[in-house]
């Protein structure tokens, strides 16, 4: 599962549109499963599934099940396979109560689940998700993420995900690509992104009383709030010696380590680039 991130206007949606054949690239070549998308758009369609977060591929005025029946005939899905795929999606995405409901009456989260199922009925080799969690509530987001994780693990479907919700990436993707204005800025493991960003982890300590900022080697206080203090230290360093150092010098009640969020990492990356450029 590949995550594709970048700020607004970076070219994420444009990339998806080129990969699906909606747009043809102004120069350069492009192959998806050996097919040139814009030249053989309808042939490619058999091999890919697409979910647009902002607009549905379902038929607005028809019941959800009718949309699936249309998909079955459009993609010429054999009956047995259609049944099996539909049953699995209905079960995992919790759709059974929604099948007779016209799409326009579905909530955003329900519609998104319906859309994801529609994109998978014909067993696509590649699934494109353009902002699949945009506008969803926390529960719906969790449901969608859980389903996608299982899909990738069990069916082995390649998933390409664009998002600006970095939690999607943290929950789902091993490989991440960061682009800005069409330029690839990073391509690799999620963990590697942290290193590149030279990010910092945070040790949050609760002291017995309010004290001036703690002074320890290898960390600096970035914030204090009553008896609680936040200490930043390099993500590559181990937290253990730091904890020992703090505990030996100060009256400690509780502590926790916060992982760096990639939002900060990416922000840092852009900032670095800006100063370099």
């Amino acid at each position: 599962m590949v995550g594709y991130i970048g700020p607004n206007g970076a070219g994420k949606s444009t990339t998806i549109k080129m990969l699906t054949g909606i747009l043809s690239p102004s120069h350069g070549t492009l192959r998806v499963a050996g097919i040139d998308p814009s030249r053989e758009r309808t042939r490619l369609a058999q091999h890919i599934g697409v979910v647009f977060g902002q607009r549905t591929t379902l038929w607005w005025d028809l019941p959800l099940i009718d949309s699936y029946q249309l998909m079955r005939r459009m993609y010429r899905i054999p009956d047995a396979r259609f049944r099996a795929n539909l049953d699995r999606c209905v079960e995992l995405l919790d759709l059974s109560a929604l099948l007779p409901v016209p799409v326009r009456q579905l909530s955003l989260g329900q519609r998104m689940r319906g859309d994801i199922a529609a994109a998978l009925l014909h067993d696509p080799a590649v699934l494109y998700l353009d902002e699949p969690t945009i506008g969803l509530d926390v529960v719906s987001k969790a449901k969608v993420r859980g389903f996608l994780r299982d899909l990738n693990a069990e069916a082995g479907t390649t998933v390409l995900l664009t998002t600006h919700d970095l939690q999607d990436i943290e929950h789902l993707c091993k490989r991440v690509m960061v682009i800005d204005h069409g330029r690839l800025m990073y391509d690799g493991e999620l963990a590697g992104l942290h290193e590149i960003g030279e990010s910092e982890r945070t040790l949050v300590v609760d002291l017995e009383e309010e004290l001036p900022p703690i002074a320890v080697d290898g960390a600096r206080v970035v914030r204090t709030e009553g008896p609680r203090q936040w200490l930043a230290f390099p993500a590559s360093a181990s937290a253990a010696p730091l904890v020992t150092a703090v505990a030996s010098a100060y009256p400690l009640v509780d502590l926790s380590v916060r992982e760096p969020d990639i939002e900060a990492v990416i922000a840092k990356m852009y900032a670095d680039r800006a100063t370099l450029g």
């Binding site: 909606i22 369609a45 890919i48 647009f52 902002q54 607009r55 459009m74 993609y75």
Partner: peptide
């Protein structure tokens, strides 16, 4: 309204 995109990704 951009819904033409959804027609373009279908095999018809």
């Amino acid at each position: 309204d951009g819904t033409l995109d959804t027609l373009l990704v279908r095999p018809v």
